[in-house]
Measured scan of single mutants.
Amino acid sequence: QEELVKAFKALLKEEKFSSQGEIVAALQEQGFDNINQSKVSRMLTKFGAVRTRNAKMEMVYCLPAELGV
């Protein structure tokens, strides 16, 4: 569980995922086979993730800066 949270936060820091499906796929690539869209959705809510525009003006998920991840 701890490893999943770390990987999840690291992915969001990249600010390149525009959908929950993309986050699920990226986590599965890292070996988290039991991850699915509903789990990702709950984690996004739990950590207060928001959708914002990145440098390329794409809408992407990211974590609020005050979490200091």
Rank of each mutant, 00 (worst) to 15 (best):
V69H: 11
R42G: 10
Q28E: 08
T45I: 15
V5M: 13
Y61F: 07
T45Y: 10
L11A: 05
A25W: 09
K56Q: 12
I35Q: 02
A65H: 11
V24Q: 05
Q37E: 14
A49I: 05
A65C: 04
M57C: 04
R53S: 07
Q37M: 12
V69T: 14
N54V: 03
L67F: 06
V69D: 15
F17V: 04
F47S: 05
V60S: 02
D33Y: 13
K9N: 05
E2V: 11
K13N: 08
K56L: 09
V50K: 11
E22G: 08
F8C: 15
F47D: 01
I23Q: 00
G21A: 14
P64E: 04
I35E: 01
T45Q: 12
Q37P: 10
R53D: 03
K9L: 15
K9T: 10
E22L: 06
V69R: 07
A26Q: 07
A7P: 00
K46A: 14
V5T: 10
K46Y: 15
N36H: 06
V50D: 03
E2D: 13
Q1H: 12
K6I: 12
K6N: 11
G68K: 06
S41E: 14
A10P: 02
L63A: 03
E15M: 12
A55Y: 05
S41Y: 09
V60A: 04
F47C: 03
Q30R: 10
D33H: 13
A26C: 04
E14R: 07
I23T: 01
S19M: 06
E58T: 05
V24Y: 05
F32C: 02
N36L: 04
V40P: 00
T52D: 05
Q20Y: 08
A55F: 05
L12H: 00
L4T: 03
P64S: 05
M43A: 01
V40I: 08
R51N: 03
C62K: 10
T45K: 15
K6F: 10
E3S: 13
M43W: 07
F17M: 11
S41L: 09
V5F: 15
R53H: 12
E29F: 08
Q20P: 14
D33K: 14
L12A: 01
M43P: 00
A55W: 04
F47V: 11
A25K: 13
T52A: 14
E22S: 10
G21I: 12
A7S: 07
N34H: 12
Q28W: 10
M57N: 15
P64A: 06
K46V: 11
V5I: 13
P64G: 05
C62S: 14
A26R: 07
Q30P: 00
L27Y: 00
E29W: 08
Q37C: 06
S41D: 13
A26V: 08
L11Q: 01
R42P: 01
E14H: 06
S19H: 09
I23D: 00
E66H: 10
K6G: 06
M43N: 00
R51P: 03
A26H: 10
Y61T: 02
E66P: 08
E29P: 01
R53L: 15
A65N: 12
A10R: 10
A26F: 11
E14G: 06
A55C: 04
N34E: 11
M59S: 05
E22F: 04
C62F: 06
Q1R: 11
I23A: 01
K9V: 15
A10I: 08
S18G: 13
E29D: 10
F17P: 03
A25C: 07
G48H: 08
M43G: 00
Q20N: 08
E29K: 12
L11T: 03
L67Y: 05
A10H: 08
L27N: 00
K39N: 09
M57T: 04
Q1K: 11
T45S: 11
K16A: 09
G48N: 08
Q30V: 07
N34K: 11
A65Q: 12
V50A: 07
K56H: 10
V50T: 09
N34R: 09
V40F: 02
K39I: 14
A7H: 06
A65E: 14
L63P: 02
F47T: 05
E15S: 08
D33G: 13
E22T: 06
K6E: 12
C62A: 15
L44K: 01
K9I: 15
K6V: 10
L4D: 01
N36I: 04
T52H: 12
D33A: 14
I23S: 00
E3C: 15
K16Y: 04
K46F: 15
G68T: 08
E3T: 11
L12C: 04
M59N: 05
A26I: 06
K56R: 10
T45M: 11
S19F: 09
A10Q: 12
Q30H: 07
K6Y: 10
V69S: 13
R42H: 13
N36D: 13
S38Q: 13
Q30F: 07
S38D: 14
E2Q: 11
E66V: 06
F17E: 01
S41K: 15
Q1Y: 14
M57Q: 12
R42Y: 14
R53F: 11
F32G: 00
A26D: 03
E14L: 15
K16N: 05
S19L: 07
A7K: 06
R53Y: 13
N36S: 11
E58H: 05
F17S: 04
Q30G: 06
I23E: 00
V40M: 03
P64Y: 04
F32T: 00
C62H: 07
A49Y: 05
A26E: 07
G31W: 02
E22K: 07
R51Y: 15
E29I: 11
E58Q: 13
Q20E: 15
A7L: 07
N36R: 06
A25L: 12
N54H: 03
M57W: 08
P64N: 05
I35V: 12
C62G: 13
A10D: 09
E66M: 07
S41I: 08
A49N: 03
R51K: 13
N54I: 02
A25E: 09
A7M: 06
Q28A: 09
K16I: 08
A26Y: 12
L44M: 06
R53T: 10
V40G: 00
K13V: 09
I35D: 01
F8Y: 01
L4N: 00
K56A: 12
L27T: 00
A65I: 11
V5Q: 09
G21Q: 14
G68M: 07
K16D: 03
R53K: 10
T52S: 11
N36Y: 05
F8Q: 00
P64L: 04
L27R: 00
L11G: 01
L67W: 05
M43T: 00
V40S: 00
L44Y: 01
P64M: 04
V60N: 02
K6R: 14
Y61E: 01
A26T: 05
Q37S: 10
V24P: 00
E14D: 07
Q28H: 11
V24D: 01
S41Q: 13
I23M: 07
E15P: 09
E29L: 12
E22D: 11
G48I: 02
G31D: 02
F32S: 01
R51Q: 09
V24C: 06
M57A: 10
G48S: 05
Q20D: 07
N36T: 14
A49T: 03
R51M: 15
F32H: 04
N36W: 05
I23V: 03
V50C: 13
K39W: 14
Q20L: 12
M43Q: 01
L4V: 07
L11E: 00
L12D: 00
V60E: 02
Q37I: 12
